[in-house]
Amino acid sequence: MASSFDKYQKRKLISSYISVVISIALVLFLLGCLGLLVINSKKVADHFKEQVVMTIYLNDTAKEVEVNQLKKSLAMADYTKEAKYVSKEEAAELMKAETGEDFMDFVGYNPLKNSIDVYLKADFVTTEQLTEITESLSNKTFIEEIRYDNDLVELMNDNVKKISFWVLVVSGLFTLIAVLLINSSIRLAVYSKRFIIKTMQMVGATKSFIRRPFVWKSVQLGIIGAIVALIGMAVVLYYLDITFPELELLRNTVMIVALFVGVFLLGVIITWISTFIATQRFLNLKTDQLYY
């Protein structure tokens, strides 16, 4: 009879530990994924900014020497990520591929212009920077026109600012929720052993002696939960990097390692503090207060 009861108590204890580990792992995993979003939010925003094209249309009278000089100066400019020369013939072929019709059959000639598509670095994709670049290039007589989607640039920058703000707000809120959830799980685990704590205290054990095994066990559970969360984060990061290789998510190694270490330490620190506070609370209660 006693043996079956002991087995039941052991299964109940193991079940309690597993539920605590799962709770810690899930909370830390979600928090870590949010951290990955925060770390890579600028990289994602920069990726979309660098898809904006500034097209420089050239006069038909432009000399080859002038065009080559312009291409070299653009390639060496601080604001240029990539500069691609597009001849009027290539532009006509691209338009034919997009529309499915050869417009030159109706027009009788090619009205398009030779051009250079300039893909800018993300830091220069602002209305002010684009205006400054346009003004610096407009003094060249062989450039007919410079075009870019200014409305798209303004909308993109406004949205990036809004998204960045709300990501930080959500991150702070989620961190608080994570602390509260882990704290609640640890407190429930300690609550189930409140009578053991009080019994040990009644037979003369000191508070630090009573706290030590509870704190150590909770820290162990925190470490296990953190490791499970880190494995989940690593899997998510791996598949995201395969799915979106152009974002180069694994390139920022220092920040990723710092995030993983931070998540691990957070799991350990929260469980240690929560267990310390919870055991201290029950140590300070009177025996008749344990039933409430």
Rank of each mutant, 00 (worst) to 15 (best):
V118I: 10
I116H: 06
L137F: 00
D123K: 12
A122Q: 03
V125Y: 05
S115R: 07
N114Y: 01
T131S: 14
E132L: 13
F106I: 13
S138M: 12
T126Q: 04
V118L: 13
P111N: 05
S136E: 02
Y119T: 04
D123L: 08
D123M: 08
E135P: 01
T131K: 14
Q129P: 01
Q129E: 14
T131F: 11
T126P: 03
V118N: 11
Y119L: 12
I133W: 04
V118A: 07
P111D: 07
D117K: 15
V118T: 05
Y119I: 03
D117Y: 07
L130N: 11
Y109A: 13
K113F: 14
P111C: 08
E132D: 12
S136F: 00
V125D: 08
Y109R: 14
T126F: 05
S136K: 09
S136A: 12
D117M: 12
L130E: 07
F124K: 09
I116F: 07
I116N: 04
S138E: 14
D123S: 12
N114W: 00
F124V: 10
L112V: 03
F124Y: 15
T134P: 02
P111K: 06
S115W: 03
Q129Y: 11
G108H: 08
I133D: 01
N110D: 11
T127N: 11
V118K: 03
S115E: 03
T131W: 10
T126A: 06
I133M: 08
L120W: 05
T131G: 15
G108W: 03
P111R: 03
D123H: 03
V118M: 06
P111Y: 09
K121N: 15
T134F: 05
V118F: 06
L120S: 07
V125K: 02
K121D: 12
S138H: 12
N114I: 01
N114V: 01
L120V: 08
T126D: 01
F124P: 05
Y109D: 15
D117I: 10
Q129D: 13
F106C: 00
E128H: 11
T134C: 04
F124N: 10
S136T: 02
S138W: 08
Y119S: 11
I133N: 02
L112P: 01
L112S: 02
L120D: 04
S136P: 00
G108F: 04
L137E: 02
L130F: 13
F106H: 05
L120H: 06
S136V: 00
K113H: 14
D117P: 09
E132T: 14
S138V: 09
K121R: 15
E128K: 14
I116L: 09
I116G: 08
T127P: 01
Y109K: 14
L112Q: 02
Y119C: 02
E135S: 13
G108Q: 06
S136W: 00
I116Q: 05
I133Y: 03
N114K: 00
K121I: 13
S136G: 02
T126E: 01
T131A: 13
A122G: 05
F124L: 09
V125N: 06
A122D: 07
A122Y: 01
Y119G: 00
V107H: 05
D123A: 14
Y119R: 13
Y119H: 13
G108R: 11
T127L: 10
L112I: 04
F106M: 11
F106Y: 12
S115H: 04
E135F: 05
L130D: 03
N110G: 07
